[in-house]
Nucleic acid binder design. Structure first.
Lengths: 355, 355
DNA sequence: TTGTAAGCGTTATCAT
DNA sequence: ATGATAACGCTTACAA
């Protein structure tokens, strides 16, 4: 008897491409649906049947086609990261956190930088969401402060979690840090070291993180009952260069501040740079504290005292929040929404110089 | 006359979800296939028909469902980036380059870090390629040096382009830089400044880039007819910390080298750090050159003389290579495959100290 | 517990 | 130049 190609059970698996659910079904003598149940870990399934199907799956090296699942399920296996490149290290840390959360799942991370400031921002994001239809997106600050984007996600039926320096949204959609308190603690530390003339390099206008950190600075001064002239506050835009420029303003003052808190490490590195160019010794003549604890903090000289911002954990939590409900209902653990920063003491702070 | 729901041309578009190709087809009075042709810019199409359909598409705000396209086409609109985190800044620069290339297209970038060294490396990559079915992938060094991955891509029918410090593959699948020559030029520069005792901090064993840069170093010495003891070569693993360790070895030597070439900026920053801890002045007592021209090079003190590696352009070219053939046939411009690095002179090099 | 039939929204084949 | 019909591989009703 000659077996016609269409009826030969072994043939399907041999076809050009990869084995499909049909091949598995045929070879294990069950229906597609049963195979589907095995893939999706349906509880109502004969253990023996499950075993048999799984054996065939292994032998065939069958991998469910995610595109087909995506079409049937109406959702993609993608987690998006939407950001406006607030700074390189932060973006990378966030990516790391998200990837940690995606580890072992079928999800992949798709990165979408956009241009805050561009008039087409929302169209851009919409375009991305419509084209890729990610399962959910993590939105980085400062973009996360834009309510329009959150609304857009809602409108397009895309899950989202915002990251930020303050609670901007409900717990399901937000992962936040306590920047204000952490900065207050850092400035308090400077005060405890005897510093009375403390400069602030604030972050750019319009950034929630910048505002929070500035408030923390002011909180600490208020708590210590010191009142400082406005000239001790300079503004930067979170870049190294802006840190230099701001530092130069502060270092030109008379009397000169004996300590400077910069709202991120990049700007703090700029302060160190500017001081060095003027021959001002750190920490002997000037103490400096940054924020973020990015690698640069440990790499410059002297190593920078800074506030460690648990950005990787925050990103991981954000992604896990997105994925919550994916696994079996039972195992879903509520992800914390508030992450605490803390001061990391290195060599850039010393007691106030005498005289 | 009562219009039955199924025949009401306007109804489909109102349904719960988004409008589909069927809605567009019905409303514009053509078949699905014709709409498909409009979407895919098929050349054989009546201009007038195209206009009509496009009008409906606009009015409806129709966006083709990417899952369905992916299923039908067997490929996703994704460009993958496969890397083993060679270093943060490099990964980020590559992402930037790829995204520049993807600008304005429907493609998105999906990032996949893997663990070189893991025995499951190839399974990992296979898993990723099978699940996400990216249109193509860019492979970063040192992973790009693994021929197994390239073979895997071929086997799975996934386009790929490797990035590296030497031509490892044919022009269609490779974007390379001339590290060897660039390093030779840098070392020659040190020699021209009077340095005779030049230390090398090599990159880790097994990295093609490390080998190429080391060869460049040796080329320059050979050209200058100087022969150095092996002790002037230390090995690092491209990290800041390993740069410190290697620098300490070199700075312990008697006589002490008056210049050090480090195979990347991170390690060069480590050299600067180590020298400072010992009170060795840079560049007065020690000249340092790095490689990459990452931001850290300009941010440390003194600013680092380094070799600028056009990594962003390389990544952009890699992605464009992947996309080649996507657009109309006519406009495809061959992307260059070899990118030239060049020396960026800053303040970390000075003529050899006298005595 | 398992199977059947009907989609999901698109593209490909092969007509016309 | 355009259309009817069958894939693409999977899931969700709804039966059995």
């Amino acid at each position: 008897m000659v077996t016609s190609p269409d009826e030969d059970p072994a043939r399907g698996a041999q076809r050009a491409g990869k084995p499909t659910i049909n091949d598995v079904a045929r070879l294990s003598g069950v229906s597609k649906k049963t195979v589907s149940r095995v893939i999706n870990r349906s509880p109502l399934l004969n253990a023996e049947t499950r075993e048999r199907v799984q054996k065939v799956i292994r032998e065939l090296g069958y991998v469910p086609n995610p595109q087909a699942r995506a079409l049937a399920l109406g959702t993609n296996f993608l987690i998006g990261l939407i950001h406006d490149n607030p700074n390189a290290q932060m973006v990378l840390n966030v990516q790391q956190g998200i990837l940690e959360a995606l580890q072992g799942t079928d999800f992949a991370m798709v990165v979408r930088p956009v241009d805050r400031g561009s008039a087409a921002l929302l169209d851009d994001v919409r375009h991305f969401l419509e084209r890729q239809r990610p399962y959910g997106v993590v939105i980085l600050p400062p973009l996360s402060e834009n309510d329009g984007i959150a609304r857009l996600c809602l409108e397009l039926g895309c899950r989202y979690v915002r990251m930020g320096s303050a609670a901007l949204d409900d717990a399901d959609h937000m992962v936040a840090s306590n920047d204000r308190e952490a900065v207050a603690e850092a400035v308090q530390f400077l005060y405890d070291q005897g510093h009375k003339l403390i400069g602030l390099i604030a972050g750019p206008h319009g950034f929630r993180s910048a505002a929070e950190r500035r408030r923390g600075f002011e909180d600490a001064l208020a708590a210590a009952s010191i009142k400082l002239p406005r000239s001790l506050i300079a503004e930067g835009n979170y870049t190294f260069e802006s840190g230099i420029a701001a530092a130069e303003k502060l270092l030109d003052l008379t009397p000169r501040p004996t300590a400077i808190f910069a709202s991120n490490d990049e700007m703090a590195a700029g302060v160190v740079h500017a001081a060095r160019e003027r021959g001002i010794g750190i920490p002997d003549e000037l103490s400096v504290i940054g924020f973020d604890d990015t690698p640069i903090a440990g790499h410059i000289w002297p190593p920078l005292t800074t506030v460690r911002w648990p950005i990787v954990s925050m990103a991981r939590a954000a992604a896990l929040k997105l994925l919550a409900g994916q696994g079996e209902a039972g195992e879903s653990v509520a992800e914390p929404s508030m992450f605490l920063s803390r001061l990391v003491k290195r060599a850039s702070v010393a007691p106030r110089p005498k005289g």
